[in-house]
Amino acid sequence: MGEKKNKEGFKPDFVFERKNYMFMLIGIAFIALGFILMTGGGSDDPNVFNPEIYSWRRIRLAPALVLIGFAIEVYAILLKPDTKDQN
Rank of each mutant, 00 (worst) to 15 (best):
M1P: 08
E3M: 14
K4N: 12
K4A: 14
K5H: 07
K5Y: 11
N6V: 15
N6D: 13
N6A: 12
K7N: 13
K7G: 04
K7Q: 12
K7M: 12
E8Q: 10
G9W: 08
F10W: 12
F10G: 05
K11A: 08
P12S: 09
D13K: 14
F14S: 11
F16N: 10
F16L: 15
R18N: 10
R18W: 03
K19L: 11
K19M: 06
Y21H: 13
Y21I: 13
Y21G: 03
Y21S: 04
M22D: 03
M22R: 12
F23M: 12
F23I: 08
M24R: 10
L25S: 11
I26S: 07
I26D: 02
G27F: 02
G27W: 02
I28P: 00
A29N: 08
A29G: 12
F30K: 01
F30E: 02
I31D: 04
A32G: 14
G34W: 00
I36P: 00
M38A: 03
M38T: 00
M38C: 04
T39A: 08
T39S: 14
T39E: 11
G40Q: 06
G40H: 04
G41L: 06
G41C: 05
G41P: 01
G42D: 10
G42K: 10
S43M: 07
S43T: 15
D44H: 09
D44P: 06
D45N: 15
N47V: 10
N47A: 10
N47K: 13
V48R: 09
F49T: 15
N50M: 11
N50D: 14
N50P: 01
N50G: 06
N50S: 07
N50I: 11
P51W: 02
I53T: 13
I53Y: 04
Y54P: 00
S55P: 09
S55L: 09
S55C: 09
W56H: 14
W56C: 07
W56T: 15
W56G: 08
W56D: 15
R57W: 01
R58V: 05
R58F: 06
R58K: 15
I59F: 02
R60I: 14
L61R: 01
L61A: 04
L61M: 07
P63G: 07
A64R: 03
A64I: 13
A64E: 09
A64K: 01
A64D: 06
L65K: 02
L65P: 02
V66P: 00
V66M: 02
I68W: 07
G69L: 01
G69V: 05
F70N: 08
I72D: 02
E73G: 06
A76C: 07
I77R: 10
I77S: 03
I77H: 10
L79I: 05
L79Y: 12
K80H: 09
P81V: 13
P81R: 15
P81E: 15
T83R: 15
K84C: 04
K84M: 07
D85V: 04
D85N: 14
Q86S: 05
Q86M: 11
Q86W: 04
N87F: 06
